[in-house]
Simulated scan of single mutants.
Amino acid sequence: MTEEIVFCKGGGCTAKLGPDLLSHVLGKIPRGEKDPDLLIGYDSRDDAAVYQITEDTAIVQTLDFFPPMLEDPYLFGQIAAANALSDIYAMGGTVKTALNILCFPEKMDLNILGKIMQGGAEKVIEAGGTLAGGHSIADADVKYGLSVMGIVNPKQIYANDKGRPSDVLIFTKKLGVGLVCNANRVGQAPKGAMEEAIASMTMLNKKAAEISHRYEIHACTDVTGFGFLGHLSEMINSSISAEIDSISIPVIKGAMHCAEEFLLTAAAQRNRNHVAERVTFSKYIPFAMEELLFDPQTSGGLLFAVQKEDAAAFEKELREAGMPAAIVGRFTEKKEKDIYVN
């Protein structure tokens, strides 16, 4: 077996533990006494923890790491870093510092290690943050990511479950990363699909977050390993359901073809098993579109719930800034099911 094959066995956010398993374990962890300054912890299934330190300042804290999903170590470093940084943006925060998290085989070429860390460092700099250190261990397989700290005004936090009926849902990137990366590993990615997926995964959500601060955002999440429907389900509260216009979903070129060819991931099936009972698909929705909506994303886009009056202007500004952003649905008053896909 060559070293190149060992480097990429399949990773990115497809390597996440399944949401069912994770929920089962988290439900049994001792919580301790509630800290009133912990504004957001894992109880809300949000994207990061938020801890208030003054009236106007709270710390946003997150971490994320995973194995490579492609063979290029530099691009892998960029993607892993962009993915970790995204959680700060999903909370409405600004990136301040980051720490490397690295697992690396001692016998592997150190040039590969350098390229991974170079890619990650460049994304931290692009985010306006400072790489302040990190931790590494010897391991059989490569894994890389960041622990990131940001700040946010406690009055301007983007929680993921504060959406309101009539809010419009806007998504800022294309779906299909998991399908395309999986097809690429077996040499069956459609022409140009992997290049488009890489461009999406390496793009920071910084600009989208900065633009969002000019509008009334009620809720936000970034769409990663649990797929579009998995993360959308975490936005549903007791007052709302969601209607999704599948025809409006931005899609990476060739991703639907990958689904039609059954180049699927096990993570997508775990996502389907976790959330399928909460979703009603129109009879006109093809199997490939269902798979796309369950597909695990790596460094995916932000999903905003914005007040109806701001939606058109917000979408327009995002698109003018170079993002494939689209209005993809809306929240409604509570219905029988949480999510309806039309």
Rank of each mutant, 00 (worst) to 15 (best):
V341N: 02
D64M: 15
L131N: 01
A138M: 04
T97N: 12
I157Q: 05
C220N: 13
V180H: 05
H257W: 07
V306H: 05
N83A: 15
V186A: 07
K115D: 07
G77R: 01
G77N: 07
A219K: 03
R214G: 12
D141C: 02
L102W: 02
A82T: 12
T97Q: 08
A325Q: 00
C8V: 12
P190E: 10
A98G: 07
P324Q: 06
D46M: 01
N273W: 05
T265E: 08
R270F: 11
G329R: 02
S200N: 15
T265L: 12
D139I: 05
S44M: 10
G119I: 03
F104N: 09
E55T: 14
Y89N: 08
A312N: 08
D141K: 13
T14K: 12
D338L: 04
G128I: 06
D222F: 06
N237L: 06
A268T: 09
D46S: 15
K283M: 05
C13N: 15
H24R: 15
V50G: 03
D109M: 03
S239F: 06
A321F: 02
I157Y: 03
P67D: 10
L39D: 07
H274R: 06
V186E: 11
F262D: 13
M149C: 12
C8G: 03
M203H: 05
E243P: 03
A15V: 11
K162H: 14
G133L: 01
D87L: 00
A58N: 12
G120V: 07
T298V: 14
L113R: 14
P67T: 12
D167T: 09
D295I: 10
I252E: 06
R270T: 13
M256P: 00
G178M: 03
A98E: 03
Y284L: 15
L113M: 14
I339W: 00
I198A: 05
I157P: 04
S136G: 03
P68S: 09
R330M: 11
D141N: 14
T54V: 02
D43I: 02
T224L: 02
S248I: 06
I88G: 02
K335I: 00
A242H: 01
I247Q: 14
C220D: 08
A255Q: 07
A267T: 15
D72M: 10
E243N: 11
M1T: 10
E290H: 14
E309P: 01
K207A: 11
K9S: 13
S299C: 11
Y89H: 07
K337C: 06
T265I: 11
M289C: 11
C220V: 10
L70W: 00
K174A: 15
D37S: 13
G134P: 08
T265D: 04
L293Q: 10
L63I: 05
I112N: 00
E195N: 11
L204A: 11
I101V: 12
A197G: 09
V142S: 05
K253S: 15
G10F: 04
Y215D: 04
G329K: 04
Q78H: 02
A84W: 01
P30C: 08
S233Y: 12
M149Q: 14
G301W: 02
Q269F: 13
G119W: 00
M117F: 00
G41M: 02
S86P: 01
V148Y: 04
T54M: 05
L70Y: 01
F7L: 13
G18S: 15
G134F: 02
R278W: 01
N273S: 13
